[in-house]
């Protein structure tokens, strides 16, 4: 297993947030963690990222216990984490400070192309749309060539059209770069569109209710029987009738 949570529990003071989470992600796997707001998804991701220590249990990556943040695994934020004082180029090259200027330039250029921001190299984040800022952040993470990406509701603040585009771009990038991805969302459709497996969590204290294999090849047909079946299965698992 690339990333392994072993019996992870977390409490903040008297509040239990996570209970006995045991979960593994394989190398190159796209794992979605799905659950209601406040169930501890961000907490779980922060533990894996080394930003929080669990109250009990442990997380290992490649068999090594996680104790601190590491540039081999990069966290992409729910809120906008791009640095407003740097240009697109500056942001994407942020983590490449130990490279020579020439190598850095080449790497930055490569990822500007990958996320489709050619022509905006010298722009500042305030001149970009929400989706473009999110691309900068993804490129900044990928540029340091991490082997794990943690994404915490990265598209949560985007409009539904941009969100859909960003999903297919993320899949394209994931296929090209083959990172292990842990993607937190509370959007059921999003999880079925993206994931190899969807980890469905309960309301707080967060426990794993079920892990659903999404056995649909990419590109996924959102009106196929299997897609609708799996989506409804998860709706049922979360305890929602699929009606408004």
């Amino acid at each position: 297993m690339k990333v392994q949570f072993s019996d992870v529990s977390m409490r903040f003071g008297a509040m239990e947030v996570l209970q006995h989470v045991t979960l593994g992600a394989e190398e190159g796997e796209f794992l979605c963690i799905l659950g209601p707001s406040g169930c501890g998804k961000s907490t779980l991701l922060n533990i894996a990222g080394g930003f929080l220590a669990p109250s009990s249990g442990s997380v290992t990556i490649d068999g090594e216990p996680v104790t601190a943040p590491d540039r081999r695994r990069i966290f992409v934020f729910q809120e906008r984490g791009v640095f407003p004082w740097l240009t697109v180029e500056g942001n994407i090259g942020f983590g490449l400070f130990d490279m020579s200027a020439g190598d850095r330039q080449a790497r930055v250029s490569q990822y500007i192309d990958l996320v489709g921001l050619r022509g905006f190299e010298k722009s500042y984040p305030r001149e970009l749309s929400g989706g473009m800022k999110q691309r900068v952040e993804v490129a900044r993470a990928l540029a340091v060539n991490p082997d794990v990406l943690f994404l915490d509701e990265p598209f949560g603040a985007l409009d539904s059209i941009t969100r859909l585009q960003m999903r297919s771009e993320l899949l394209r990038i994931w296929r090209a770069e083959r990172k292990t991805v842990l993607f937190v969302t509370h959007d059921i459709e999003e999880s079925v569109q993206l994931a190899d497996r969807v980890v469905v969590m309960s309301a707080r204290p967060g426990k794993i209710r079920r892990v659903v294999d999404i056995d649909i090849p990419h590109p996924r047909d959102l009106s196929s029987r299997r897609y609708i079946e799996l989506r409804d299965l998860i709706f049922g698992e979360i305890g929602l009738a699929h009606q408004v």
Partner: peptide
Amino acid sequence: VPPMYIQAGRNFG
């Protein structure tokens, strides 16, 4: 300073 800036800085080592 938004905590995510600091977290990102730490993340990049």
